[in-house]
Design a protein around this nucleic acid. Sequence first.
DNA 1: AGCACGATTAACT
DNA 2: GTTAATCGTGCTC
Length: 202
Amino acid sequence: MRSDPLTRLPRSFFSRRTDLVARDLLGCLLVRELDGTRLAGRIVEAEAYIGEEDLACHAKAGRTRRTDVMYGPPGFSYVYFTYGMHWMLNVVTEKKSFPAAVLIRALEPVEGIEIMCSLRGMNGISLLCKGPARLTQAMAIRKAENSLDFCQKASSLWIEPGIKLRATEIAISARIGLGNTPEPWFSKPWRFYLKENPFVSK
DNA sequence: AGCACGATTAACT
DNA sequence: GTTAATCGTGCTC
């Protein structure tokens, strides 16, 4: 059976300005297929990391083994490990060879909630996918899920279109957790989230 | 080979 | 509000 070509966001969606991709991902459904079962959540928070000039972006170090996927074509996963214990999920954006990505920071749980709770070792949905490390744990996304093609049918990770949001439903702020990142990058308005949505991280 | 740091979280006081 | 957990990565020696 042939899959519906509209089921997954196409590569052209990701091959655009990263801040616009981050904004437009709000409301879309992130889907992870695990053992034939769908785990899914509505994206409610995302951040843009844009190029070698952006000193908050890992590409500030240039092309290395870690950042290599960001220099490839858009629509691929960039999964990295940090703080000695956490995995973060990004989607590569812009044209090939321009390093940029969107960090998926929080989801409103929709499908496979019991399995996600089991993977997190907890009950209840309020904290299930509220934060970038929580959602990767809930969806079993780790090193093996780096460099997967979101646009290819065989991939176990993809994004489906969501309802069109009104501009008034979207909030914009500086990115979170940037530590010592200097200005102007520290204050760039590249975090997008749904206003008053309880699943957005703090 | 050694070092400082990190796009965070949970468990504290 | 503060802090420990815990290790890959990129940089310096």
